[in-house]
Design a protein around this nucleic acid. Structure first.
Length: 285
DNA sequence: TCTACGCCTTACCT
DNA sequence: AAGGTAAGGCGTA
């Protein structure tokens, strides 16, 4: 293993890596995490005032630094996030005083597949489903989680029946059909949506089976550089109504527009905080 | 077009 | 141990 220190302020590893925007990070006993970034097994730890990334000694330091910094969005100026969200009701104090929950930049296809699995499910189960899909990919290490996420073609060829057999339920059909379509688009087609506008990219994603407004916003926020995306699920909706006094009967797409207006390009960040706070609230009440 | 509502699978939790 | 719950989306009325 090689290690390097990222020039990035320490952040909330648990809520960032394992808080529901990604589903393939594994907690180790020492509060660090291991997982896969672009077909490489990596280990991420917070050590004092530093973030330390470890990886296979065969990989070049420069290349791994670039990958990790991209995945964790290390170059972005988070002081602006603190300024914009730091005095919001409910979660503002957490933003300004605690280690940040970061919006990451995942590989779009893996992100899309994961959130197709997420519908009408919960985090433990989503992890189980994504792990099963990941096992279709190339092994990149000894650990049970160490698989490169399979290309769309591979998932499509595995077929609906297989995906059902590993626990995806009715989502198997959605993922199988979408994998087929995305495979047909060719390499890099999904990532190309990064240069499209928010609404163009969202329309394109929602053409896919199993991708409605909520799943689309997750993919836009967590993999396609659309900070204005604001995934509205039952929890975030409840939080928005409670914290900001929105009408009880407001439509979900209106909640999204409200969030874009209020939080701008940091809507996705606000959503992570609102989601977390609402979940914690339900668990503790 | 727009909205409301039933349904879809099953792991996980209590 | 059995039954309810869960980061939604789709098809139909």
């Amino acid at each position: 293993m090689s290690t390097m220190t990222l020039d990035i302020e320490p952040f909330d590893l648990e809520q960032t890596l394992d808080g529901g925007q990604a589903f393939r990070w594994h907690l180790l006993g020492d509060a660090s995490y291991c997982g896969v970034v672009e077909s490489r097994a990596v280990h991420i730890a917070s050590e004092g005032r530093r973030v330390v990334v470890s990886f296979d000694a065969d990989d070049s330091q420069d290349e791994m630094r670039e990958r990790a910094e991209d995945y964790l969005q290390a170059v972005m100026d988070v002081s602006e996030v603190r300024r914009v969200l730091g005095s919001e009701p409910g979660f503002g104090e957490s933003v300004s005083k605690s280690p940040l929950v970061r919006v990451m930049r995942q590989e779009p296809w893996e992100c899309l597949a994961a959130f197709i699995c997420s519908q009408n499910s919960n985090i433990p189960r989503i992890k189980q489903m994504v792990a099963a899909v990941a096992r279709l990919g190339r092994r990149i290490g000894e650990e049970e989680w160490a698989y490169e996420f399979p290309e769309p073609r591979v998932v499509a060829d595995a077929g609906e029946a297989y995906l059902r057999s590993v626990g995806l339920g009715y989502r198997a059909k959605h993922l199988s059909l979408t994998a087929q379509v995305v495979a047909g688009w060719g390499d890099g087609a999904l990532a190309r949506l990064r240069t499209a506008s928010y609404s163009e990219a969202k329309d394109a994603l929602m053409e896919l089976q199993g991708v409605g407004p909520k799943v689309a916003d997750c993919v836009l926020a967590y993999s396609l550089d659309k900070g204005e995306a604001f995934p509205v699920d039952v929890h975030v909706r409840r939080a928005a109504i409670r914290l900001y006094g929105l009408d009880e009967d407001i439509k979900n797409d209106m909640v999204g527009e409200w969030a874009r207006d209020r939080f701008g390009k940091y809507a996705a960040w606000a959503q992570l905080y609102m989601f977390r706070d609402e979940i914690n609230r339900r668990l503790t009440s």
